[in-house]
């Protein structure tokens, strides 16, 4: 075991971990941040997506020890301190982009990087951006609609 410091959603967490634990394991099993989901555990589905220094990554493929000192954002860190929803969360609800919900947090963490870097992305850009996130339920149309809706609201 070794002790590391992780900066998650603006707060520092000291955690004792095994050398080979992934960020996903630490988030879910040690810190109870279960919004981030475990699917394939090998980079194939995207439901474990979080942001590290503002970039979307698969937390199942990142060693927690290597994430020390970086700014990690999970779905729990979106919106304003748990009171208001992030525009993406709101748009996913309104557009009906959630069925079972298992992919949703990963989709939103991914789309959140897209909207931070691209104002009013085209449908093509949206579909390309979320290519690493699978949804078994919605058929993607409503997810794309939700991201477009959030984009128009945040473009200002």
């Amino acid at each position: 075991m070794k002790t590391i410091e992780l900066l998650i959603n603006g707060a520092t967490h000291e955690v004792s971990i095994e050398a080979d634990e992934t960020l996903l394991q630490v988030l879910r099993n040690r810190l109870d941040l279960t919004g981030t989901k475990k699917g394939c555990d090998s980079g194939g589905c995207g439901c474990c997506s979080v942001q590290v220094d503002g970039k979307v990554v698969y937390s199942c493929m990142m060693y927690a020890a290597g994430a020390a000192g970086k700014a990690i954002t999970t779905i729990e860190g979106l919106g304003s301190g748990g009171t208001a929803l992030d525009p993406l969360q709101q748009a996913f609800i309104e557009a009906g982009a959630v069925q079972c919900g298992y992919c949703t947090c990963g989709m939103i963490m991914n789309a959140s990087e897209l909207l931070a870097t691209t104002k009013n992305p085209s449908e093509d850009q949206i579909r390309h951006a979320i290519a690493g996130n699978l949804c078994r339920c919605t058929g993607y149309t409503k997810i794309v609609d939700a991201i477009k809706l959030a984009a128009t609201r945040t473009a200002g």
């Binding site: 980079g43 995207g46 698969y58 990142m62 991914n110 690493g132």
Partner: peptide
């Protein structure tokens, strides 16, 4: 070709 999450890492 690679997904965004791989391009970023």
């Amino acid at each position: 070709y690679p997904p965004r999450q791989i391009l970023n890492v």
